[in-house]
Write a protein that binds this DNA or RNA. Structure first.
Length: 981
RNA sequence: GCGGGGGUUGCCUAGCCUGGUCAAAGGCGCGAGGCUUAGAACCUCGUCCCAUAGGGGUUCGUGGGUUCAAAUCCCACCCCCCGCACCA
């Protein structure tokens, strides 16, 4: 059992001491990789590890390919959640404190300090950084920064001034979900039950109070989404128990619920409440219906919710099941003085559809759902059904009640009525929440219109054009996600880019605003180059001209240096370094950032930087499942990363995260898989120990297989085979890595190469070869395998590398390259022939159940081979039809000899079977076989006699089939006949 | 509603772009054998159905179509997942 943690610690320290991951400009080609920096409001869990591990594997691979790789990391303090947490701590929120102490392992004595949000950020920042180091991420830590560093603030204010100069910043009003208690916007994350606050816009139809009891000019604005039904209004509903206000709203006297008065004021309406009154006090009064000018009564209804809309509802009993039912209820319980009204109320049908043929649509819907009272939940279903039906199928009734709107579709009429009434001041509008939403603090949320809100104007067409152009020039991995990017670019509109609270950078021209977190994280990759010089730069005098020069080359170093009180050399050095590393070669993140951050990243780069500094590649990965299930607090299956590292070691976690799925798929993390990987690698480790030092007198250890080429070539068939296989593996794995197909790469390295080695050992052992005799081949194989595995499992690979005597670190060793001279097609085909024969033998044994004492393998003779190769050439040239092929053979087309022609003619059945066999051979294999020519099957199989005899415990003989020897099953090339007894 | 991505053999996941190598790779799980005092681990084999000679049959969401040939191409349908904003 290996001590994975000790190995991990050893190499972590060794890398640190040797500073191998620090990158500075050199003459070599650079490769600049960045990952979305973390938000330090909690410790990392396994799921976070995937993106970072993927980026690290990529960084390590490119480093081994000879690039000067820069892989830096920063920490994103910007935002409101940390602030909210610190507030909850200050309020002694038990639940949060328990989460910190029990789940996140924060020592209780630290909690006090968490009243300051920055301390929370710093705490988890340190925690996450340690986790990253333990995971072996090859990060250049000298460039670390946070987004509240003064120099970073300078950088962001520069970004915003430049965006504003270019006209990409706008200002306007903007509705948001709002918590009146917290005085701040709420989004899904801030609400109880994580409800997304959705808005809807009501039309407020103004009914004028018309009777003679004073209150002249009092309007009752009924909130509705169905303006076209106003013609069917028979009365107004008020909730008799609710509090209503008589208020001046923008100079007009309205009757609305007290709640509505408040909500209107958040919508920036001028609301002055004059008095309040109960709903019941107005029952029986009369109002005038706009457009039709009919007079209708005010009646009581319990279903009216004063917290929704205005608390005033227009009643359309013909088309609204609620209204219809409320009227029915009322008839049972009415008082004497209301009776006269009720008797006069008849539903007025104004929409014609399937529902109107039999009478009153609402009545039909109510019957159909078996509704019993206005409190019946089935009313909701009846309403939805009728509304939907009438909206799509209904037409305005042709009777005179619908006035000029007769015959229109409901869809059109609704819009026309709305426009006409708004134009005639008969109506108003009001934004409201579609469903009630509660803030985490418990308060009921409202819609608030923020005025003077600042936006980044992503709707700008010219800008979109540039973003598209950048996207098309970029490499997107996986390619499948490109289409989504295209749509996001088209869809983006203005985005609010500043908030009133939170950590971050103040908006330079209006310091009441903090730049929002998805807007201050779009070009920070450039800042990694500057962050390294943060101490030398200070923050005091670094102004826009510094960033103009360093990032855009505007101005000259001398005057910039002077104005910022810096040395000219420093300014020039930073500019050079920026030009060396920029643009970003690869940006990694989870796929959840595609519709926001990653697209903003593109937008902001094309806005600010010249084309040659636009990003080159984006890599997107899916998320991580735990035993097939989504990680969530409620399932309790969130595994903190550092805890997992302590238990299983980083290498195994890294490999487990990447082996279960290719990029875009969700990766399934399971302990079974992790253990299986760990055991597999422990075996690899013992193989290293077993063969280390056995390689005789070559001093070539750690120098790949090249020095042993000559030695290997003289050795046995299996040696040549393993070396040939190795070249294919190097080729395949390199191709996979270039496309970041990490699953395929790992599968090659962990499983396929393992199988190859097992086969090799079996072959060699059957011949009685000793460890010393096979060490040369094994060590060459191990050398390449460990190099290629090292980006995935760097710690254990360093350990194995050093055991095998490798020079330096495997982390900085060269990625193996294919040695074409070692690829041997005939040997490849020969070995697979042996495997084939064994497969066939297994099958025969399985079917017959016999235990052979003697086996004879007949291989095809010369004439069959000639025929086979002639046919192979024809097939490769495109002739796959039997008849045609036969004709060509018989007439001796191409280089077909007379002997072969005659043979083919006499054995049509053989030709047919051979063709079948050729057609079921992979095309590239057909090519290879044609190149190889006659394979010495007898020689190849004889070489494997020891193996076969041992495997089956029987005597074995290989016979070349001639005219004399023929079995009932005929031998074909690559398909020997087997006889057992 | 709008947009994106999917449905593969017990499970997870390749393959689909560039038809034939596909009864379909790999892993996990399960079963048998080897090794072992025993177990674990490891190694080998098996894991859709049938078959006493390496064979045959039926499969890749459903239904059609194109083709000598379709998991792969085309059409229709059913089902599932994800995003839709001021939030990191």
């Amino acid at each position: 059992m290996l001590d994975w943690l000790a190995i991990q610690r050893r190499w972590m320290d060794a890398w640190d001491r040797a500073r191998i991951f620090e990158s500075d400009p050199t003459g070599e080609r650079k490769y600049f990789i960045t990952v979305a920096y973390p938000y330090p409001n909690s410790p990392q869990h396994i799921g976070h590890g995937r993106t970072y591990t993927l980026a690290d594997v990529h960084a390590r691979y490119m480093r081994m390919k000879g690039y000067n790789v820069l892989f830096p990391m920063g920490f994103h303090y910007t935002g409101t959640p940390i602030l909210a947490m610190s507030r909850r701590i200050a309020e002694q929120d038990r639940e949060l404190i328990e989460t910190f102490v029990n789940l996140y392992g924060v020592k209780p004595e630290y909690i006090e300090q968490f009243k300051d949000p920055v301390n929370i950020a710093r705490y988890f920042h340190a925690e996450i950084r340690e986790g990253m180091r333990e995971m072996g991420y090859s990060i250049d830590w000298r460039r670390e920064f946070t987004t509240i560093d003064p120099l970073y603030n300078r950088f962001i204010t520069w970004q915003f001034r430049r965006l504003r100069d270019k006209g990409f910043i706008s200002q306007g009003s903007h509705p948001v979900g709002w918590c009146p208690r917290d005085q701040s916007p709420v989004s899904q994350h801030d609400t109880l039950g994580d409800v997304e606050p959705e808005f809807m816009e009501y039309l407020l139809i103004k009914f004028r109070l018309v009777d003679d009891a004073g209150e002249e000019g009092l309007m009752l604005p009924a909130a509705t989404l169905r303006a076209e039904t106003v013609f069917g209004a028979t009365n107004i509903w008020l909730n008799p128990d609710a509090d209503y206000a008589i208020a001046m709203v923008d100079g007009e006297r309205w009757l609305i619920s007290v709640s509505a008065a408040e909500r209107l004021s958040y919508l920036n309406r001028d609301v002055r409440v004059e008095s309040t009154i109960k709903g019941r006090d107005l029952i029986g009064r009369r109002v005038s219906v706009p457009l039709t000018n009919r007079h209708v009564p005010i009646l009581p209804a319990r279903f009216v919710d004063p917290r929704n809309g205005t608390g005033v509802v227009m009643s359309v009993p013909a088309h609204a099941p609620y209204d219809y039912q409320a009227l029915r209820d009322l008839k049972h319980s009415m008082h004497g003085e209301l009776k006269k009204y009720l008797d006069s109320i008849e539903p007025i049908v104004v929409i014609e559809s399937d529902y109107s043929n039999g009478g009153i649509p609402a009545a039909i819907a109510v019957e159909r759902h078996g509704v019993s009272s206005q409190d019946d939940p089935r009313l909701e279903d009846a309403t939805n059904e009728l509304y939907t039906h009438e909206f799509y199928r209904g037409r305005m009734s042709s009777s005179s009640v619908t006035m000029g709107y007769a015959g229109m579709s409901v869809r059109d009429a609704r819009e026309r009525v709305r426009v006409d009434m708004l134009g005639g001041k008969m109506a108003d509008t009001m934004l409201d929440l579609a469903r009630p939403v509660r803030c985490r603090c418990g308060a009921e949320c409202v819609v608030k219109i923020l005025t003077d809100q600042w936006f980044i104007d992503y709707s700008n067409d010219r800008w979109k054009g540039l973003a598209h152009s950048c996207l098309e020039s970029m490499n997107i991995l996986p390619e499948d996600i490109r289409e989504e990017f295209r749509h996001v670019i088209d869809w983006l509109r203005e985005r609010a880019c500043a908030r009133r609270s939170g950590l971050g950078t103040k908006l330079p021209w209006d310091e009441n605003w903090i730049i929002e977190s998805l807007s201050d994280s779009v070009i920070y990759m450039a800042y990694y180059i500057i962050a390294r010089y943060a101490r030398a730069l200070g923050a005091g005098d670094v102004g826009d001209e510094f960033f103009d020069y360093v990032l855009l080359g505007i101005g000259d170093a001398g005057s910039v240096a002077e104005r910022c009180r810096l040395s000219r050399e420093l300014v020039e050095q930073i500019r050079r370094e920026f030009l060396y590393y920029y643009p970003v070669d690869s940006r990694h993140s989870g796929r959840d950032l595609v519709p926001n951050h990653l697209t903003f990243f593109i937008f902001n780069h094309v806005a600010l930087f010249p084309r040659e500094l636009w990003p080159r590649q984006i890599v997107v990965n899916g998320s991580v499942l735990m035993d097939g299930k989504k990680m969530s607090k409620s399932l309790g299956n969130i595994v903190p990363l550092r805890k997992a590292i302590r238990e299983y070691g980083s290498d195994a976690i890294r490999a487990s995260l990447l082996i279960s799925a290719e990029l875009l798929q969700d990766a399934d993390f399971t302990l079974d898989m992790l253990k299986s990987i760990r055991e597999k690698v422990e075996r690899l480790y013992s193989t290293c120990v077993q063969f280390a030092g056995r390689s005789r007198g070559d001093g070539a250890r750690g120098d790949g297989g090249r020095a042993k080429v000559e030695q290997v070539k003289k050795q046995e068939q299996e040696d040549a085979w393993l070396m040939s296989r190795l070249q294919h593996m190097i080729q395949g794995t390199t191709d996979a890595m270039d496309r970041l197909r990490v699953r395929e790469s790992l599968s090659n390295l962990l499983y396929i190469m393992d199988q190859d080695m097992q086969w090799y050992l079996k072959r060699a052992r059957s011949k009685g070869r000793s460890d010393d005799e096979i060490a040369g081949t094994i060590l060459s194989f191990l050398d390449a395998r460990i190099r290629m595995l090292s980006p995935f499992m760097p710690f254990i690979c360093e350990e194995m590398w050093s055991i095998l005597g490798g020079k330096g670190f495997v982390s900085t060793a060269e990625w193996p390259t294919v040695d074409r001279s070692l690829i041997n097609d005939a040997i490849d085909e020969g070995e697979s022939l042996i495997m084939h024969v064994m497969d066939d033998v297994d099958r025969i044994i399985k079917v017959t159940g016999m235990k052979p004492r003697r086996m004879t393998v007949y291989v095809a003779g010369r004439l069959k081979w000639e025929l086979y190769l002639s046919m192979l050439r024809m097939v490769n040239a495109g002739t796959t039809n039997y008849g045609e092929l036969m004709r060509m053979l018989v007439k001796g087309a191409g280089s077909v000899s007379d002997a072969v022609a005659g043979y083919a003619k006499s054995k049509p059945e053989l030709v047919r079977r051979m063709l079948e066999s050729i057609l079921s051979t992979p095309p590239d294999s057909r090519q290879r076989r044609a190149t190889i020519g006659v394979l010495d099957e007898a020689g190849v199989l004889s070489d494997a006699i020891p193996l076969l005899e041992r495997e089956y415990g029987s005597r074995m003989e290989v016979v070349l089939e001639d005219g004399g020897v023929e079995m009932k099953k005929v031998a074909l090339p690559y398909r020997p006949a087997i006889y057992m007894e």
